[in-house]
Write a protein that binds this DNA or RNA. Structure first.
Lengths: 231, 231
DNA sequence: TGGACTAGAATGATCTGACAAATTGGCTGG
DNA sequence: CCAGCCAATTTGTCAGATCATTCTAGTCCA
């Protein structure tokens, strides 16, 4: 008989597990508030220090946020992509992964998603993309706002694929690359070229031509990479 | 003049940031130990409670682990894929993403990586894959061990693509699916079929035939999906 | 000699109680 | 009516003590 080494759980971890399952199981919905620390301490039978260590864990997971004062307290949140992106970013930094690898990943992921999206996009989604395009046109003179809208458009295209896993993956690499793009900056000409590329991509989606959409996305991404790597 | 709402950082977050940057910047390498809490408290000028909240954050990020006793203490770790997988899993659970979406993501990611891998695999990697195949043969009678080796083989194939981002993505969906596979279990016949598929995939890699490798991976994954969805 | 046992030290884990800081809502005096 | 101040609530931080775990070294006995 083989026994694995027995792991002694900490009280703070057990508390974190208990509260996390309340959230994941939907007992407390996002937006709702947990009882104040004072009450939790009595209900859980641990000290405040232990409870607070558990809260920091949940906060690191993006499940809660805390505010001081009356009307403050512990609010349950739905974690966004931030944590996923953060985990990825940490891993890549520690492995000293070159930026070109991130670019390549996006260059492979997005065309694939666009291909799927061309088949699956609903009419409403296409109209939404048209509105996003309009947003990009309006923000053409503000680099930061433009980069933000561009990412939103990309994600809108990817959302048409109706696959949340791929959407989250693409979003996390997209966020990393957008951060860099904002640093480097885009000239007005580059922004205009990007806008035209977006128009072409939406056109391909409207035609339900997946391979055309994929090709256009890839070309656009290659152009962006050329800009990012010019220095 | 517009001022964004001023955010008051907590001491525990500042401490976590400071320690994290020590790790990310390589001042303390993985495997090294941080000073004991007692010393950190005096060096950082915060209370022990605050320091410990910071440590729980870093632990949640997979950057450290703590042990009690002499020779215990705070060890710096390189975070593995666990955090990424965990973040993804949380997000998917809260969005009530169906399992089929995860399967689809893998079915799209792995063939793409295999295609790349066929072009880029080194001789050493091919030999490593051959050894993994041997491991699978030896574990053919132990379902859990077999599933583990199968995931290792898959990841070995993906590693040939030499893209860490895609490797991490594929690994995280792979871990989610493997967990399910272990629950469902595989019959001996299914394991033998899987083994033969792996042999075929390695064969395609050896021939440097990317599209063949992609097709074989996809067929294999479709077979696995059929097993997982049979109930 | 050698092995088992024990006492002590190092270290993290938890608890307790207190005070500080932030924020809201109501009160009060003009 | 309103501006400003005060009190209450809640989280944030601190200091100190005690408990639990685990390694080391020494001791005792066969």
């Amino acid at each position: 008989m083989r026994l694995s080494t027995l792991k002694v759980p900490r009280a703070s971890e057990l508390v974190a597990d208990k509260l996390r399952s309340l959230i994941v199981d939907g007992v407390v919905q996002a937006g709702a508030m947990l009882p104040p620390e004072k009450n939790l301490v009595t209900q859980l039978g641990v000290s405040r220090a232990t409870l607070r260590e558990a809260l920091r864990i949940l906060e690191a997971e993006g499940l809660i946020l805390t505010k001081t004062g009356p009307r403050g307290g512990i609010t349950v949140q739905r974690p966004g992509s931030a944590n996923l992106t953060r985990s990825l970013s940490l891993l890549l930094q520690l492995q000293e992964t070159p930026f070109s690898t991130i670019l390549e990943a996006r260059r492979l992921l997005e065309p694939m998603c666009a291909n799927l999206g061309a088949e699956r996009a609903t009419q409403a989604e296409l109209e939404q993309l048209e509105r996003m395009l309009q947003q990009m046109r309006e923000q053409l003179n503000d680099t930061n706002a433009y980069v933000r809208e561009q990412l939103a458009f990309h994600m809108g295209v990817i959302a048409c694929a109706h696959n949340d896993v791929l959407r989250l993956y693409t979003l996390s690499v997209g966020e990393l690359i957008s951060a860099r793009t904002t640093q480097v900056g885009l000239s007005l000409e580059e922004r205009e070229i990007g806008l035209r590329a977006a128009e072409q991509i939406l056109d391909a989606l409207r035609k339900r031509n997946g391979s055309l959409a994929a090709r256009r996305v890839e070309l656009h991404l290659l152009a962006v990479e050329a800009i990012l790597e010019k220095d």
